[in-house]
Amino acid sequence: MLSRIAESLFWIGRYLERADDTARILDVQMQVLVEDPGMDERTSCEQLLSVMGVEEYTGTPNRWMILDLLAHNPESDTSIAAAIGASRESARRAREILSTDIWAAINTTWRGLGTARSMRPPDMFEWVRNRMAMISGTAAETMSRDEGWQFYMLGRSIERADMTARLLSTAALASGPQVAWPTTLRACGAYEAFIRAYRGIEADRQAAEFLLLDRWFPRSIVSSLVQAEKALDKLANVGPRSGFSDEAQRVLGRARTELEYRPLEELVFDLPVEMERLQRSCAAASEAISHRYFTDHDLYEWTGGVVL
């Protein structure tokens, strides 16, 4: 497979997942602000901007500012609109191997951004999630399970681990966990699965454990890291007799084992710090993948967040 095609597929997966998860994070933030009147809006918005890697902005942070910076503004590198636009550009570069259905789904989503901006925030977030789910389903039904699929899934899985870490940081920083954690579970589509897994017990510790460590739920961090490792394993030609010659596999494997084998109490004691460490691991893995597989990897880089 040509390097530019592999790179485009990798970033299609990342950009689409970034748009989806940013909508989920914003949905959590907006609901918490509405449901917890005692929360300081400025502090909460500043924390969210920090979690999302937005360091430079003008004015006092509030819900309307974060909607502009993280949702509507195509000039903001961390916005949903920018991620969808970048996914379309990546799809255009890989047009010769993408099915017509995938291209049409991505292009239609990009063209619908203007209408989405006029929606109420909850309706826009739902629209983004539905469009991303449709594109993911179309890709799953129309792409051969070849190298292209592995690069697509690799990008998607790394981005999902990173963005779920940001979502957990957002929930942990909220002043009212009794509001934040149920909302976070619903934003991940995990509430019903969580209730079944823990037989109706709703507690912050169990919610964090489920989104961090559950191997069966596809949006958990460990599940995403396992999926990324599987994709890398299938892309590797011949494995070494000992250790890992693939730096990305080593970085992701170490991040996963540090989550799985450490006591949960240590992880949740300072969850934002632990999630920032995981984001750095995802960034290092992405850089290693770029150096190994992509010749012109500087073409695609996150400029507004921790992830490259």
Results as ranks from 00 to 15, higher is better:
E56L: 11
E56I: 09
T58E: 15
T60E: 14
T60H: 11
T60S: 14
N62M: 08
N62V: 04
R63K: 07
W64A: 13
M65S: 10
M65C: 09
M65V: 09
M65R: 02
I66T: 02
H72D: 14
H72N: 12
H72M: 09
H72I: 06
P74I: 07
P74V: 07
S76T: 02
D77T: 13
S79W: 02
S79T: 04
S79M: 03
I80H: 10
I80L: 14
A83L: 06
I84E: 10
A86M: 03
A86W: 05
S90G: 03
A91R: 01
A91E: 04
I97G: 02
I97V: 11
W103E: 07
W103D: 04
W103P: 01
W103I: 06
N107K: 09
T108L: 15
T108E: 13
T109V: 09
R111L: 07
R111F: 13
R111D: 15
G112H: 12
L113W: 15
T115A: 15
A116M: 14
P121A: 01
P121T: 08
D123I: 11
D123G: 03
D123M: 13
D123V: 12
M124T: 02
W127S: 04
W127V: 04
R129T: 10
N130P: 00
R131G: 09
M132I: 03
A133T: 00
A133M: 07
I135R: 00
G137D: 11
A139H: 00
A139C: 00
E141G: 03
E141D: 13
R145S: 08
D146F: 04
E147F: 06
W149S: 01
W149F: 07
W149V: 00
Q150W: 07
F151H: 06
F151Q: 06
F151T: 08
F151V: 09
F151G: 10
Y152P: 04
Y152A: 03
Y152M: 05
Y152G: 07
L154S: 08
E159C: 02
R160I: 08
A161M: 09
A161G: 10
D162L: 13
M163A: 13
T164D: 14
T164I: 04
T164V: 11
A165W: 10
A165G: 12
R166P: 09
L167G: 13
L168H: 06
L168Y: 03
